[in-house]
């Protein structure tokens, strides 16, 4: 009986928070199907009385989605793969290697996220220009690959992997790459899935950098292409919301497909004996 009550309470709390997460989004979705005069009706109307597809039709008429979609996909996938690889190797080194200056170098890595991005925008732009990477996929991808956030996360996660496991393998004569790929990586699956999802989402939504780096519209990503339409006076709220829904839909699908690995990450752990 007590157990049932606990379960009920826990679900009630989850439902409450989930609702608060969903409501702003639901309003966004519902607005994207509304005609202008219905948007500001009070009290809020969740289901449009005269639903319309006009916002979406306008969007698809004005924006040629195929190229930006393709660009965003290339950029987001490349950044995610490279970033996860670099972050897990570096995270492993910072958590399990012993070398001189390890903690100092780690703090230096961390320090790179302590200066707001606005401050480094112009210098990074100038560097990318010097490297001749303006207006290219390289310019869109490379500056986003090394992520101090991901390195930090992987390091923290790997800290909780028992040292004995790794030491045992090393004593058996395993090389570091073997230890990393065969022991550390499988154990870190929840963390890898987590940062992969976050990195993918972040680079999918990234807006300012792709805009600045693209010298012509062929290199526009989805968020940039869509935001061109959002007017100066944000006059077309419905259109704006439709644009936003279109941008996030693919990531939602991606998340739904990948998040089950959140759970699976636990399997190899319980199976191991140590």
């Amino acid at each position: 009986m007590k157990k049932f009550f606990c379960q009920l309470l826990s679900h009630a709390i989850l439902v409450l928070f989930s609702l608060s997460m969903v409501i702003p989004f639901a309003w966004m979705l519902s607005t994207s199907f509304k005609k202008p005069h219905e948007i500001f009706v009070f009290p809020p109307r969740w289901i449009p009385r005269e639903p319309t597809l006009k916002n979406y039709l306008d969007l698809f008429r004005a924006v040629n989605f195929s190229r930006p979609f393709f660009n965003t996909l290339i950029v987001a996938v490349s950044i995610t793969v490279l970033s996860v690889l670099l972050a897990s190797t570096a995270g492993y080194a910072f958590s399990k290697f012993r070398f001189k200056g390890r903690d100092k170098i780690f703090l230096l890595v961390l320090a790179t996220i302590m200066v707001p991005g606005q401050m480094t925008l112009i210098p990074v732009f100038l560097i990318v220009k010097q490297l001749g990477m303006l207006n290219s996929y390289a310019g869109l991808i490379v500056p986003g690959v090394a992520s101090a956030f991901n390195i930090f996360f992987m390091r923290q996660y790997m800290l909780s992997i028992p040292n004995e496991l790794i030491e045992a393998a090393r004593i058996d004569g395993a090389r570091e790459d073997y230890v990393f790929f065969k022991i550390v990586l499988p154990l870190s699956r929840p963390a890898i899935v987590t940062i992969a999802i976050f990195t993918f989402t972040g680079s999918w939504n990234s807006f300012l950098w792709p805009l600045v780096v693209a010298q012509d519209e062929r290199y526009y990503t989805l968020p940039v292409a869509v935001s061109v339409l959002a007017g100066q006076y944000s006059e077309n709220l419905g259109l704006q919301m439709a644009g936003s829904c279109v941008v996030i839909l693919p990531i939602l699908v991606f998340f739904i497909l990948t998040q089950k690995y959140f759970m699976k990450g636990i399997a190899p752990l319980t199976g191991l004996k140590y």
């Binding site: 379960q7 989930s18 997460m21 989004f25 939504n205 935001s227 936003s244 996030i248 939602l252 998040q259």
Partner: peptide, 30 residues
């Protein structure tokens, strides 16, 4: 014993994926 875990997770994921400009407009309305 938590049911519908995936559904909850998707809900919790929403604020993170939603475009900042659009969600700011929603919040100024809220």
């Amino acid at each position: 014993d938590t049911r519908m875990k995936n559904l909850f997770k998707v809900c919790f994921f929403l604020p993170f994926v939603t475009n900042t400009v659009a969600i700011a407009i929603v919040w100024s309305w809220i």
